[in-house]
Write a protein that binds this DNA or RNA. Structure first.
Length: 560
RNA sequence: CGGGGUGUAGCUCAACUGGAUAGAGUAUUCGGCUUCGAACCGAACGGUUGGGGGUUCGAGUCCCUCCACCCCGGCCA
């Protein structure tokens, strides 16, 4: 609809220029927006304000000139000049009722588009180390990342979601040592407890399962506890598998599923790490100093060079990261997005520097990054410092068990990724009923209930509906239709900006408008035509809420 | 000190990317079920958008400068 109006304006201006009533203009960029205030019509353009200078006319006069020459169309009721020189457009009843038909016709496809043109994109998110359970911070990454995947699919992208496991390196060794210590009956208070060991209670559970010889069924393999506390490698494999399985289960309960999993260890076993290190050395971007191998990241915008291979011969964490991203690139993903916590900010420059050093014509800005700010957890009015080593944190599964997946997802995705959010545990649990997600779901359930009621009255009502005759004349009805009309654009915009929270806000507003309407007017009235019109409106709202909630990974219940 | 982020109502957050009178929820105070679901609705209260300067028809949004908070600045990941 926006496009229709901006085309109309553009055409009008072109005609005015050709007939000499306006000077020749360099560049005309017509911006049409949905209005905030219903008094300003449905759509508005500031074109007269932006062109007034180059036309040497006062904005209001220019606006009236454009308006007088705008051709009449079926989708516009009328237009007017307002304020400093805005042109406001009022849509016709015809245009709005066609919208409802479109929603009902397209169903779950309403709002979708093909901007992505089926181009493949790899979206990596969560990627937590398998050294402990997922916490709220991971939950935020999961909620945002998964919603972005759904958003991108709705925009026609060919999305593959991937989870990268850092299942090798020092922290995994620390995990194995911690489990081993627990197997031997050593606890964190004991002087023999390993340095940098993981103190959480879950380590004990892993140790017990290992000693019991439990068999773990993972996606790609099966591991049985060897029971022997001396076999550190066996302990490590068992512990990693155990914790991966736990994370997968937590994510599944959170309605998050990945298309693929990638193991850091595979980059070592396949020799890819060694290969790219050699290639980077050959490219001339490295040097030896103090017994370590350095990458000249300063040549790619870093403030100092970084160590790739430590004195002890092992690699720093970003080296396998580079290998991993080469792997993504070689799998053919010209589009890649990494959703991570803001604490990983520093690695972006390093990984990109490594990719550039390889001279593979990878774009400088590849891969794309979306960082979410940290979650501050508050309990009893005090900040809970998240520390995996100390075992102090709120796990995702505790949270989901307590307040439910829908409420947790909504809470974590409803804020802009860039805002650092405060998560008050007590508030989240006690006030979970106040979560706006229920407000939105309730609107969906209410409409479903009305439709059930209609079916009770006449099981065949749907077929008998006359869809062409809209009787919707109320201001509230107009407002709702105007809101429904924005949905496709919200989907597009949220994807372009990687900001799924705009969907959440949109749904909150739509639900609010419907609740208000529902409270003042009855849908199932006597008058058949009016009743059918209102049913159609309700069906439109219901469909859009369902589509929007689906993008947020939240259920749309028929009753609650 | 350097890099990134944030600062909007008592609290938690929005604001369609520079537009018209800065909006919701929550808290507080009133009012609304004999009526399709009250997990709802209506009303009131609540603001110098951290401070100061600048750019222009127009700034919460862009630029400069201070102030405060969060993250990063390991041969940890």
């Amino acid at each position: 609809m926006k496009e229709n109006v901006s085309c109309l304006i553009e055409k009008t201006i072109r005609n005015l220029v050709e007939s000499g009533r306006l000077p020749v203009l360099e560049k005309v960029e017509v911006v049409v927006e949905f209005t905030r205030d219903k008094k300003h019509g449905d759509l508005a353009s500031n074109i007269a304000l932006t062109l007034s200078k180059s036309c040497r006319m006062n904005p209001r006069d220019l606006a009236s000139l454009i308006l007088q020459n705008i051709p009449t169309t079926s989708f516009l009721d009328h237009c007017e000049v307002a304020g400093a020189g805005f042109i406001n457009f009022f849509l016709s009843k015809d245009a709005l009722s066609k919208l409802l038909l479109e929603i009902i016709d397209k169903k779950e496809r309403f709002g979708c588009n093909n901007e992505g043109k089926s181009v493949p994109i790899l979206i990596e998110f969560v990627s937590a180390n398998p050294t402990g359970p997922l916490h709220v911070g991971h939950g935020r990454g999961a909620a945002i990342g998964d919603s972005i995947c759904r958003l991108m699919r709705a925009n026609g992208w060919n999305v593959q979601s991937e989870f990268y496991y850092n299942d090798s390196g020092q922290q995994i060794r620390n995990l194995a040592l911690s489990v081993q210590a627990r197997c031997l009956g050593i606890d964190p208070q004991n002087p023999d407890w390993p340095d940098d060991g993981y103190c959480g209670e879950y380590i004990n559970e892993v140790a017990r399962a290992y000693l019991d010889g439990e068999t773990l069924e993972a996606k790609d393999k099966s591991v049985t506890g060897a029971k022997d506390p001396e076999l550190l490698d066996e302990i490590q494999e068992f512990a990693v598998t155990y914790l991966r399985r736990e994370q997968d289960r937590d994510l599944a309960n959170f309605n998050v599923n990945f298309d693929s999993f990638f193991l850091e260890s595979s980059l070592y076993s396949s020799g890819e790490v060694e290969r790219i290190v050699q290639e980077i050395i050959d490219s001339g971007y490295t040097y030896e100093k103090d017994g370590a191998l350095w990458l000249k990241t300063t040549q790619f915008g870093d403030d100092k060079d970084r160590v790739m291979r430590k004195q002890d011969g092992t690699f720093t964490y970003f080296v396998p990261d580079i290998a991993y991203h080469i792997n993504k690139w070689e799998r053919g993903f010209k589009n890649a997005l990494n959703e991570q916590g803001a604490d990983h900010h520093g690695t972006i420059t390093r990984v990109r520097a490594g990719l550039q050093a390889l001279k593979k014509n990878i774009p400088e800005k590849w891969p794309n990054y979306l960082l979410h700010q940290m979650v501050t957890v508050v309990r009893n009015g005090e900040e809970v410092k998240i520390s995996k080593r100390k075992g102090e944190y709120l796990t995702l599964s505790e949270l989901v068990n307590e307040v439910g997946s829908d409420a947790t997802r909504y809470f974590l995705v409803a804020r802009a990724p860039n805002s650092q959010l405060i998560f008050d545990i007590d508030l989240a649990i006690s006030a979970s009923n106040d979560n706006p997600v229920f407000y939105i779901q309730y609107a969906h359930a209410r409409i479903s209930s009305v439709l059930r009621k209609m079916t009770e009255l006449d099981s065949d009502w749907m077929k008998k509906m006359n869809l062409s005759n809209s009787k919707l004349i109320l201001e509230e009805e107009h407002l709702i239709m105007q809101h429904l009309m924005k949905f496709p654009e919200i989907i597009k915009q949220a994807a372009q900006q990687y900001e799924p929270h705009t969907i959440a806000n949109y749904l909150r507003e739509l639900a609010g408008e419907f609740h208000s309407y529902y409270n003042s007017y009855k849908v199932l009235v006597e008058d058949k035509e009016l009743r059918e019109s209102r049913i159609m409106l309700s069906m439109g709202v219901r469909q859009v809420i369902a589509n929007g909630l689906n993008i947020l990974g939240v259920s749309a219940p028929e009753e609650m």
